[in-house]
Structures are given as C-alpha cells and as structure tokens.
C-alpha cells in the first residue's frame, strides 16, 4: 500500500551562490540540480575550487551523491547525512584560499553526528577571501554568541601558504551543537576598546612585518593606545611554498563585538587567470602601504558601525536561517 514519492529536485541555474546553495541544500536535505554554470565562459562549467568544495561536502557527509555532467555546466547533488568525524584531510587546491572552504564548514560541522576535525591544505592567506587569522580571531569568538560550546571549537594554523603555490595547513575543529542554536539579540555595538592583529610573512624577511605594524600603529595611535599587533613569521616548511606577507586586524568593542579586516600581498604567477595579472602582477604593495591600507579599512568598518563586519555577515545570515527564533543583529 505504501507509496513512494518520486525524488524531487530543486532546480537552480547559474553559478552564483554555489556555497550557499550547497549548504542550504545539505541542511534542509533537499536534492538540487544546478544547471547553466558558466555556459559561455572558456573553459565552461565549474571552477576547480568549486569541484574541491563539492568534494569537501562529500567528505564530511555520508551517502551524498554528486553527479557531474560531462561539461561541468550542470550537476546533481543529493545531500547525505552529515557525519563529521576526526582526522579528515582535504586538499583545497591552489585556486582559492581556505577561507572559502572554512565558511561553510563551520556551519555544517555543527550539525554533524560527530565533532568535526579536519585538516585543510591549501592557501591560508590571500586578498580575496577572509584569512585564517581573521577566522581565528573574529569568527570563532562570534560563534560563541549562538550558544556553541567554546571547547572543541578551534582553528590551528600549522603551516602558512601564500598564493600561488600554497602549502598551508590548518586544522579546524568544530563541536556538535546539542539541541539547537540559541537566538541572539545583539544590537549594541559598543565602543572599540582594543585593537589586536596578526601579521604574517612567508618566505620573505620578517622585517616586512615590523614595517606593516609600524604603519598600522601610526594610524591607530591617534585613536587608541591599546593596540597590539603580533608577528607570525614562518620559516622552512611552515612557510609554505610561495612568498607573501599580510596583516589581519581586529577591533574589539566594549560589548564584545569583533570587527576585522585583513589583506595580504603575494606574487601572482598565474598566466591563465587574467584578473590576478591585472590586479596584482603590476606591482606589489609595499608593506608600509599595506599596513596603512588595512588600518584604514578597519577604521572604515568601525565608522560604518554594526556588530559584525562586512565579511562575517554571511555567517550570521546562515545562522539566522538555522534558528527557529527571530534574531536581532545590527
């Protein structure tokens, strides 16, 4: 007597919001078919990093099915059961930095069956995605607002890797959230009470970092005395495979909000990706300019106000969706 429903797919088009689509599809266990992915581009279809993302989703879930069309302009995704698990390793490739992969992971990890502990290999810092430093200093503390247990939530940077060759290595640990996330009411941004930051340099002189710090402090000093920027110079294996340097800054407010920015400079060697060539190849930003630039952006974010900076709105939006209650974030 029992009758089976045919599996219904949600059909989506275009390459936009791939991460969000996959994430929401997984959380709501809705099978999706995405078609018309960059049909006119050369080469068409999914990019390498997007395929890596799909593989990552497959890695942490059980029984998920991904069927990629030959031209990669279309694929089918049937989400499985989120498993989590320990000692997973995923190579995220050299096309996108780890920030791109970490963002969906911190959401998915919470709803797995077992706590997630995964080692991601690839690029740790670039100028496009939020850096791992920002993740550690800003994103993870923010998550505690949603009632996520702080023990077990951890991001460890083992090696750094700059584009184009990467070689970075981070370990992300996400606990399982027991019942459900708690709703937040978070509308008071408070006042900035301290500024912290980290600089990093891989395969370049550690003097670069000091220069960056000096430049950034030059701007902050007129506003706030409590500025500490740490250096993180990596050498040898830990420095990855390419030279680069960068800075990540966090402003902490009296009400516990974190507002962050980060930038990085690296050598672009890709011939096939024009954007990189246009933007970066011409000349690399010198460290003092980079420091100033980062500081300015941070002040810009502070000026705009709000309890979250622009980078993290994404995460909060997602958490908001998962919640049952209304939430109030400014």
């Amino acid at each position: 007597m029992e009758r089976v429903m045919k599996k219904t797919y949600k059909r989506l088009k275009g390459s936009k919001y791939l991460r969000q689509r996959l994430l929401l599809s997984t959380l709501s266990t809705t099978p999706i078919i995405i078609s018309d992915i960059r049909p006119d581009d050369m080469p068409p279809g999914l990019r390498y990093y997007e395929v890596e993302l799909l593989k990552l989703f497959e890695l942490i879930s059980d029984g998920c099915v991904i069927e990629l069309h030959d031209t990669a302009t279309k694929f089918k995704y049937i989400p499985g059961v989120l498993m989590g698990g320990r000692n997973l390793v995923h190579d995220c490739g050299k096309y996108r930095s780890l920030g791109y992969f970490l963002e969906p992971l911190i959401v998915l990890g919470l709803f797995g069956k077992k706590p997630l502990s995964i080692k991601l290999l690839g690029i740790t810092n670039d100028s496009k995605d939020p850096s791992v430093d920002t993740f550690r200093s800003t994103t993870l503390p923010m998550l505690k607002r949603f009632g996520i247990p702080s023990e077990g939530l951890e991001l460890k940077i083992e090696c750094r890797g700059s584009p184009p060759n990467g070689g970075g290595e981070v370990v992300l640990k996400v606990p399982v959230v027991q019942s459900s996330l708690s709703a937040v009411t978070w509308t008071d941004e408070g006042m900035v009470k301290r500024i912290r930051g980290t600089t990093f340099s891989t395969r370049v002189s550690s003097q670069f970092e000091n220069t960056m710090i000096h430049a950034a402090r030059g701007i902050f000093n007129r506003l706030l005395p409590d500025v500490h920027i740490f250096t993180d110079h990596k050498a040898g294996v830990q420095a990855g495979k390419s030279p680069g340097y960068g800075i990540s800054l966090v402003a902490e407010t009296t009400t516990g909000c974190f507002i962050s920015t980060d930038t990085a400079v690296f050598q672009a060697k890709w011939k096939d990706e024009d954007e990189y060539e246009d933007d970066e190849k011409k000349e690399l930003t010198p460290p003092e300019d980079l420091g100033e630039q980062a500081a300015s952006v941070l002040l810009g974010e502070v000026e705009q106000g709000g309890v979250v900076d622009s980078t993290h709105q994404f995460v909060f939006v997602l958490y908001g969706m998962v919640l049952l209650d209304n939430y109030f974030i400014k």
Partner: peptide
C-alpha cells in the same frame, strides 16, 4: 558573481 567570496572588495574609495 563567479568569484563568489564573502569578503568585501573595497569599492569605496580609500
């Protein structure tokens, strides 16, 4: 849109 990322590319002039 292709380069989907959550970071704000600074369009505001510095």
């Amino acid at each position: 849109n292709d380069e989907e990322c959550s970071k704000l590319t600074i369009s505001v002039k510095q």
